[in-house]
Amino acid sequence: MLHLVNKSPHDGCNLDTATSIMKDGDSLLLIEDGVYGAIKAGKAASLLEGRSVSVLGPDLAARGISEDKLVDGITIVDYAGFVDMVAASDNVQSWL
């Protein structure tokens, strides 16, 4: 299953819920304000430990977050990569 989070980790509990419900083999894609969750020095970074996490590159760039600020091992995808991830998943859960 692919989990999508589009809200800041400090705005509500979407990232907490998503990461706590994820199973092994699930992936998480952070988009829009969700990309703030991928900042290594941020409070929410620990939620991503041991998870397969991707972030949407254009949303990172828009918010001025450079790659060196991200949690190690995270994958940056573009819109085409986003589509590939959706297509490759049997199901998508959007934590709106």
């Binding site: 590159g57 254009p58 949303d59 760039a61 828009a62 918010r63 001025g64 450079s66 573009d78």
Partner: peptide
């Protein structure tokens, strides 16, 4: 207020 914002892609 972060620097380096580039919204071309969105």
């Amino acid at each position: 207020l972060t620097k380096g914002q580039d919204t071309t892609g969105i």
